[in-house]
Amino acid sequence: MEPYDPKIVCFSCNFGWGYLSGEEALGAVISNWIPVICTGKIDTRHILKAFKAGADGVLILGCPEGHCHFQDGNYQTRKKAYLIRKVLGAFGIEPERLDMELAIDPEGKKIPQLLARMKRRLAELGPVKITGDVR
């Protein structure tokens, strides 16, 4: 049996993360990476669909407080993420599978490190098991 390799979907804000490296260069080394114009643009459905499609974790990388290019998209998503975590728990998905980091990393060097750190945590949790599956 192959060792368990957790899959992470990573959304990151274009204004704070990796904009100096370019999407193609970073996309080549980061799988399931979705750069967005602002973390406020991430819909709740995108996060839920990622888990439904088989993601073991979702990582959101936003700008620090006060640095949002669009006033407060990071703040809006921070509130949303807290409530989504509680909802995920009801479906049997551990809340820590949704993580959010607010910082600035123009070259995006930290992204693979953050993903590796999250992978280690997810490996301890094992694959997602959604409650109420058909026998």
Partner: peptide, 12 residues
């Protein structure tokens, strides 16, 4: 549910 979840938190 997802639509309302987003609405609710944006009103806080």
């Amino acid at each position: 549910a997802p639509k309302f979840l987003s609405t609710l938190t944006s009103l806080l």
